[in-house]
């Protein structure tokens, strides 16, 4: 368990002027585990994810991938190391078909990205990888539908399929269940259960039931600070978490009672 750390942050901070969006975060993410990240709005969850995928540079601190420092690399190099992310707001190619969306993500690793003359459809490997990614999330039937025309829930699934098509080893998922109905959420939960057998997943999610059900490790952030990391039970029973998360509610209740 100790040696399979694939991603690690050391004293990671992000400051916007005087505002400390994230302060002194040291975390370890393990292979084949789902690491949940929760916290109230503005806790710094998305900031953390944006730094882990390279799109945001930390103010201070480092990120290590398999022991190598990566926070200084260009964002697109993160993906080449196998760090893939999905976005909180659906971020797909709306005018392209679902299969084409996945083909765009899959194509990079097969080369020929600067091949100007051969038709894009002639490469079987890209096609196969894209089909496989769609199948993984259960969207095979939507293959030739334009992405803008599928349902919102399906778009969220497509979003994950696009990350899978990049052949990552680490998945950074930013609220994959945001805005989904119960049934759709359930499908994503089943999918994530399956995926965590093979990938390291960092999951930011507001749906508490889902995150309690899925997480092997759970980190709670509050106001940019790292509150606690532990198993679901450890976190649940921690008094500090109750204070940060539920405390406000209890106070309200007490006030109301009084």
């Amino acid at each position: 368990m100790a040696n399979d750390i694939v991603l690690e942050t050391e004293a990671l901070s992000k400051h916007w002027g005087g505002i400390k969006a994230l302060n002194d975060i040291s975390l370890q993410f393990h292979d084949r585990q789902l690491h949940g990240v929760v916290g109230p709005n503005g806790a710094g969850k998305s900031t953390l994810l944006n730094m882990l995928c390279g799109s945001l540079k930390p103010t201070s601190g480092c990120i290590f991938h398999k022991g190598e420092r990566i926070d200084t690399l260009k964002p697109w190099k993160f993906v080449r190391r196998g760090i893939g992310r999905s976005f909180q707001k659906t971020n797909i190619y709306p005018e392209a078909t679902c299969i084409e969306n996945c083909a765009i993500s899959a194509q990079r690793r097969f080369g020929g990205n600067f091949n100007l003359f051969v038709s894009r459809h002639s490469n079987k490997l890209v096609r196969k990888a894209a089909e496989q990614a769609l199948a993984q999330v259960g969207l095979e039937s939507r293959s030739d539908t334009v992405a803008a025309e599928i349902s919102y829930g399906e778009q969220r699934q497509l979003e994950i399929a696009m990350v899978l098509a990049t052949d990552p080893c680490i998945l950074l998922l930013d609220e994959p269940m945001a805005g989904m109905g119960h049934e759709e959420s359930q499908r994503i939960i089943e999918l994530l259960k399956e995926l965590k057998q093979t990938y390291c997943i960092v999951l930011v999610e507001h749906d508490m039931d889902a995150i309690f059900e899925l997480s092997d490790q759970l980190t709670v952030l509050d106001n940019g600070r790292h509150l606690i990391t532990g198993t679901v039970d450890e976190v649940r029973n921690d008094p500090r978490v109750k204070e940060a998360y539920l405390g406000a509610e209890e106070d309200d209740a007490e006030e109301e009672a009084a």
């Binding site: 964002p75 697109w76 993906v79 080449r80 992310r85 190619y93 392209a96 084409e100 038709s119 890209v126």
Partner: peptide
């Protein structure tokens, strides 16, 4: 129509996502 063209098209439609998929 080529694979190069695919990425060009993707970059036009959604540059941020294309970068997030590992393309320079």
């Amino acid at each position: 129509r080529s694979r190069f063209g695919r990425i060009v098209e993707a970059t036009k439609q959604n540059p941020d996502r294309t970068e997030a998929l590992g393309y320079n």
